[in-house]
Amino acid sequence: MKTKQMIIPLALALVTACAKPPQAEVDAARAALDSARTAEAAEYAPESLAAAEDALAALDAEIQAQQGRFFLIRSYGEAQTKAAAAREAAEKAAGDAATAREQVRVESEGLLAQASAQLTEASSLLAVAPTGKGTAADIAALKADLQAATSTIKEAEQAYSAGQYKEAQAKATAAIATIGTVKQAIESARQMRERRS
């Protein structure tokens, strides 16, 4: 009799305990999704982010469905599985975004280094470019072009510092092209001078 008296409250307590939504897991999944968004997954890993959002939506649907049932037959086992899946998908989106972002960052860093090295080289070439009568190198004009390239590199560095790596890539690419044109002009002037002397 005593045992029966104990079993009934225990069973009720178990049923009630099992009927609560897995709030900690749900919060963890939401936090993981927020982290993915902060990691710019929308720009760098849109498909992974969409998958994570869908997984969270499925979790919400499951919880709503269970909440609509009579409380004694609610079951949040499936919700727990879905919460884990949503969290995993959000973590994957954050990871994918970080990987893609890092790849663009490394590429833009490389382009920036290339642009700076070429700028130094072109400035040195310009310093010893042939001057005076008979040169085709308009030194002042080339200096203006190099100044423009310097400004573009600065803008690229600013974009890089602000984490706008694609913008930094575009600007570094433009600077490299401008410097290449200046180097070509200096080389033409040098060859002209050599042909004449």
């Binding site: 203006a144 423009a148 092209a177």
Partner: peptide, 29 residues
């Protein structure tokens, strides 16, 4: 017509912006 510093600056920026525009077009923006 040789440009002065002001004109060269405009032309250099025009060239640069054009290259940047091509980059963004090729990268889906």
């Amino acid at each position: 017509i040789p440009l002065d510093a002001d004109g060269r600056r405009h032309l250099a920026r025009a060239r640069s912006a054009l290259i940047e525009a091509r980059y963004h077009r090729d990268n889906g923006d």
